[in-house]
Design a protein around this nucleic acid. Structure first.
Lengths: 148, 148
DNA sequence: AAAGATTGAATTATCAATCTTG
DNA sequence: CAAGATTGATAATTCAATCTTT
């Protein structure tokens, strides 16, 4: 039942939780300090810009973002109120809705990126050491191990 | 201003966010499925048990847990309502309050541990590969880089 | 005035139920 | 009935303001 976890695995776990909390908090603080919206907004805008025709179905977006489907609907409401995205009907399927990136959303993305990138670099990237690729593989293995 | 982030660092960052979300979600789901409280409760109870005399000041506890001071006060309220901890006055300093682990809290800790440990092992530990110690150091470097 | 802790009000996240279309 | 999306109710997190003691 209770697998024997060695000290390093347990220590790694606690450090992992801690690292995530600190890094995201600092980045969000930096963004707020610059009068910009938080991380989750960036994730939504960024996912949309990468998508063909700058649009995604609500469900697709929910998969791309760290949030429940319901949570995403609420988040899109707020971002739409801010005029950064809009909803559009889906031609073939009248149940669905596209979320489409607006120009103001693209501008916001550009304003946020310097602050965000700086945060990733100084609070996270620097600590990865000589081989970011190795760290990347490690994180991807963890994400895969935890499944969808 | 915008540092050049290489693809691996950025990929590592996205995988990191993703991994954290998936692992904590799964563990919390497993706990809920077993009729047990969520992760943050465990953190509080565990911190108290390690502490001398099974008690910590509210501020000390807030440092040990991934939560703001206010958030911790609310969390302790709930855990106290569940009868797992109690507040006690601090002899020398009448401003302060100890949070003390109750026997029911220790029992809860023991009930939660198998589920929690299993989750850490299968969703996280397995992916660390041959050297958990190396992973641990990496996570600790990140936590340090992001400061307190 | 500052430290320790708490509360009120506002924001956000989540579950279950709902509505609409396929 | 199932899929896509949304809403209502509930719970949790946070900021600023507050209260008490040092």
């Amino acid at each position: 039942m209770a697998p024997k976890l060695d000290d390093d695995t347990l220590g790694a776990w606690r450090a992992f939780i801690n690292a995530h909390d600190r890094v995201t908090r600092r980045i969000n603080r930096d963004l707020a300090g610059a009068g910009l919206p938080e991380l989750s907004w960036y994730d939504v805008l960024w996912s949309l810009r990468r998508a063909p025709d700058r649009r995604l179905r609500v469900n697709e977006l929910a998969d791309a973002v760290v949030l429940s489907r319901t949570g995403l609907v609420r988040l899109v409401d707020r971002i739409e109120s801010a005029g950064l995205v809009r909803r559009e009907p889906v031609p073939a399927d009248r149940r669905g809705a596209y979320v489409v990136l607006d120009d103001a959303g693209e501008q916001m993305l550009r304003r946020m990126w310097p602050v965000y990138a700086q945060g990733i670099d100084s609070y996270f990237g620097q600590a990865l050491g000589a081989s970011p690729a190795r760290a990347r593989k490690l994180f991807e293995r963890i994400a895969d191990a935890a499944g969808p």
